[in-house]
Simulated assay, not measured.
Amino acid sequence: MAMRLAPTHSMQYRHLGRTGLKVSVLSYGTWVSFGNQVDLKIAKVLLSRCRECGVNFFDTAEVYANGRAEEIMGQAIKELGWKRSDLVISTKIFWGGPGPNDKGLSRKHIIEGMRASLKRLSMDYVDIVFCHRPDVSTPIEETVRAMNHIIQQGWAFYWGTSEWNATQITEAWEVCNRLGLIGPAAEQPEYNLFARDKVEVEFAPLCQKYGLGLATWSPLASGVLTGKYAKDNIPSDSRFALENYKNLASRSLVDEVLVKVKNLQSIAVELGVPLPQLVIAWCVSNPNVSTVITGATKENQVLENMKSLEVIPLLTPEVLERIEAIVQSKPKQPDFYR
């Protein structure tokens, strides 16, 4: 039996936006992995390592592996015998199947999709349900009312958005305020050293005005920021080796990006930490971020990701400035924020 590494770092918890819900600053998501790269047996190991490190927030979606990700997560949690109230589980609704009413954010699909998700998860409720994309063909009022219905039924405690823009989130909040309904508590945007505009410019005022929480994903830019990729070297067990991700690989692995990654690597070496931990810690250091959703298909990746918490104190103003000088990705703030 493999020896367990006792976690040496203590997890931190933040409120999800302005809600009373506390989530671990590092969470675990099942995109790409569960049902594609990871079966039930491995899932139980990965989830167990996360829990041992203090992770309480686990994210999935109806579309991940066509529902299989939810089934694996639900089954794993059941077999591990965890107390449901110790966990914060989220799923996302938008792509539920091939039929004309199986996708989007109509009242019909939100309610049917939610019930189908709960069945796959073998749970009575999720803590948060996210609208996985904006649906421009459904009035926001219809979506908002359906989400509030789900909360009234006790099938979810909070609702949020994923990959919406500031205008759409603002519109949802305006409708909620007008109708006396519960607004979206959180948004799930991509956030890493190469994708910053949404979190740092677009959503910053919404975090202040509506108390919007941010559950960010892709802290490693789909693995580009791990330093494991080179133009002519794509590890066979990595995400970019998967057929569906070949395009992403060719777009991401360009010389300009790889040079920046190499230079970031030198800062990591100097600080004596692995590059992935440095860039995950950088994401956590943004106070508007409630939680950073990490992914992992191997036990050691989970443990390595969790050690990022130890790197946060090393991010001095001087180190942050050096990172900025390398990536040169700091978004220009609109004049009226100055």
Results as ranks from 00 to 15, higher is better:
residue 190 E to H: 03
residue 86 D to Y: 00
residue 135 D to H: 04
residue 275 L to Q: 12
residue 315 L to K: 06
residue 279 V to K: 09
residue 297 T to L: 00
residue 150 I to A: 11
residue 98 P to R: 10
residue 35 G to F: 03
residue 13 Y to D: 08
residue 44 K to I: 06
residue 121 L to W: 04
residue 48 S to H: 12
residue 121 L to G: 11
residue 229 Y to W: 05
residue 12 Q to P: 00
residue 239 R to G: 10
residue 249 A to L: 03
residue 323 I to L: 09
residue 283 C to H: 01
residue 226 T to E: 13
residue 31 W to Y: 14
residue 189 P to I: 03
residue 251 R to G: 08
residue 312 I to R: 01
residue 193 L to C: 07
residue 213 G to L: 00
residue 95 W to R: 10
residue 266 S to D: 12
residue 257 V to M: 15
residue 298 K to M: 05
residue 232 D to L: 01
residue 56 N to S: 11
residue 185 A to N: 07
residue 99 G to P: 05
residue 14 R to T: 07
residue 70 E to C: 12
residue 247 N to M: 11
residue 321 E to W: 00
residue 47 L to E: 01
residue 109 H to A: 05
residue 322 R to P: 13
residue 104 G to V: 03
residue 57 F to Y: 14
residue 123 M to L: 15
residue 296 A to M: 10
residue 192 N to V: 04
residue 187 E to R: 01
residue 223 G to Q: 10
residue 306 M to C: 14
residue 237 D to H: 12
residue 310 E to T: 10
residue 17 G to K: 03
residue 301 Q to E: 15
residue 300 N to D: 14
residue 47 L to T: 10
residue 297 T to P: 03
residue 183 G to F: 00
residue 260 K to V: 08
residue 171 E to L: 07
residue 47 L to W: 04
residue 78 K to L: 12
residue 202 E to A: 12
residue 334 P to H: 06
residue 71 E to W: 00
residue 126 V to F: 00
residue 147 M to G: 04
residue 137 S to P: 00
residue 135 D to E: 06
residue 256 E to I: 09
residue 55 V to I: 14
residue 267 I to H: 03
residue 195 A to F: 00
residue 307 K to V: 06
residue 275 L to T: 11
residue 92 K to I: 01
residue 101 N to T: 13
residue 309 L to E: 10
residue 191 Y to I: 05
residue 235 P to T: 09
residue 186 A to C: 15
residue 231 K to T: 14
residue 200 E to P: 08
residue 104 G to P: 11
residue 241 A to R: 09
residue 97 G to Y: 06
residue 136 V to Q: 13
residue 155 W to P: 05
residue 286 N to W: 03
residue 121 L to M: 09
residue 266 S to T: 15
residue 301 Q to L: 09
residue 124 D to Q: 14
residue 130 F to W: 09
residue 159 W to T: 01
residue 112 E to F: 00
residue 298 K to A: 11
residue 283 C to D: 14
residue 122 S to A: 15
residue 175 V to P: 06
residue 80 L to N: 05
residue 161 T to D: 01
residue 308 S to M: 06
residue 214 L to S: 06
residue 70 E to Q: 15
residue 335 D to E: 14
residue 124 D to L: 04
residue 179 L to T: 08
residue 260 K to C: 07
residue 121 L to E: 10
residue 310 E to A: 15
residue 287 P to N: 09
residue 207 C to G: 11
residue 276 P to S: 09
residue 267 I to Q: 08
residue 104 G to C: 07
residue 34 F to H: 12
residue 84 R to P: 06
residue 185 A to D: 04
residue 80 L to P: 04
residue 82 W to G: 10
residue 141 E to I: 15
residue 305 N to M: 03
residue 11 M to K: 05
residue 27 S to R: 07
residue 94 F to V: 01
residue 194 F to T: 12
residue 258 L to R: 09
residue 112 E to K: 12
residue 286 N to Q: 13
